[in-house]
Design a protein around this nucleic acid. Structure first.
Lengths: 211, 211
DNA sequence: GAATTAATGTTGCAATTGCAACAAATTTAA
DNA sequence: TTAAATTTGTTGCAATTGCAACATTAATTC
């Protein structure tokens, strides 16, 4: 039983009460709009209630990195380092986002919300899952060649699928930014992988062959 | 007020009771010994009570990556992806490690341990901190050149120090594995950085000059 | 549905990197 | 306090990568 939402196991009515108690705010964003930027001092966490978004950073060379893909129920905000980085969260589709002060979540509620401990446990499990995800990403980025980065990411995507086939959740341009590699060098390597029979591609559908 | 230990704010006596309730086990390890390996199905988390350790992985080329440095009070175990990776935790000094079943931590205690919610909150904060750390590491690994990886890691280390000076917490050999780069290429780049006046080094003491 | 913008695909070339193979210095162990 | 093992420092060379500059195709917008 995997926790999907931070409100899992809490009744609709109670959620509303809690949100009031937390002074939580919901806001909507159009596709391609910036949800948050320059999150140096953010003490809020955001929860994607509807839609998708990317956590991105541009370095001083103008290279974009896609740090994280956010989907429905993803939690963001607690994740940002203080390092001199220009991180922002960009809506990749129309979004509805809930903002809650981090302190409310981690401190026990003075008013004694009954469901607070359920919430805490849910957050705990979501954070654990995020750590697992971050480690997967770390494993990919720690590969030393473009080929190995591609293969380990593909392996990850194919993992659930018995046919070892999957749809890229990215454009190829975004994939390059996600893997922190040059796009043209990546395309070249994908071509090599195809020619050497490691993969087959059809648009965004990719199938892993032998390995 | 930053949480340092998962038992912070809980009395010694109560900790002992909880550990019993959790069926927790303490074990000791000599320097260079393997604390855990092949953590495919681990459902335990470990807490370093004394000493230091590294989380490491070797890929099929024999390249080692240092995934994480663990210090006193570090929590590990919840961090491991299921990806086909050969991760192990190696003591880098004599260690005392506490193992607790993950389920005990996240499920509310049937016996109603009074201090369980404090514990949960502590774990939550430690996980948050770990996420911040992982993101810092991701930022470094997402740099495309050795130079940028070095500089952003050094920047991180110098961050607390007004003199922009710090001691490497690694041997240079380990640093290369931590940054997932070739050691000799790294040494070459460090030499360049020195010659171009970006840094000064004296053994493991490094000072950042202009930037 | 024409025009504009974005994504994909390709290539030559220069720069960076990994690899291998050492010597020298330092640390650890016997 | 030697001997052995590890770390640091260095270099040539081949392989990989990033960059720039395109052509082509697909997707959006007006």
């Amino acid at each position: 039983m995997e926790v999907k939402s931070i409100f899992e196991g809490i009744e609709e009515e109670d959620i509303k009460k809690m949100l009031k108690c937390f002074d939580a705010k919901t806001r909507t964003f159009k596709k391609d709009r910036t949800i948050v930027t320059n999150i140096i001092n953010i003490k809020m966490i955001g929860i994607i209630l509807e839609g998708t978004a990317n956590v991105e950073r541009y370095d001083y060379n103008g290279n974009r990195s896609i740090i994280e893909k956010l989907e429905k129920n993803s939690v963001f905000g607690e994740v940002f380092s203080r390092l001199g980085s220009d991180i922002s969260v960009i809506a990749t589709s129309d979004c509805e986002v809930l903002f809650i002060e981090y302190e409310h979540l981690i401190k026990r509620c003075k008013k004694g919300c009954i469901y607070h401990s359920i919430l805490t446990n849910n957050v705990l499990q979501l954070l654990s899952k995020k750590i697992v995800d971050l480690n997967k990403r770390l494993e990919i980025l720690s590969k030393r060649t473009i080929r190995d980065k591609l293969l380990s990411y593909f392996e990850l995507l194919a993992n659930n699928n018995p046919k070892r086939s999957f749809n890229l959740p990215f454009t190829y341009t975004d994939l390059a930014d996600y893997l922190s590699i040059d796009r043209s060098a990546m395309m070249r390597e994908i071509k090599n992988l195809k020619e050497e029979g490691f993969i087959e591609t059809n648009g965004k559908k990719i199938t892993l062959k032998s390995y």
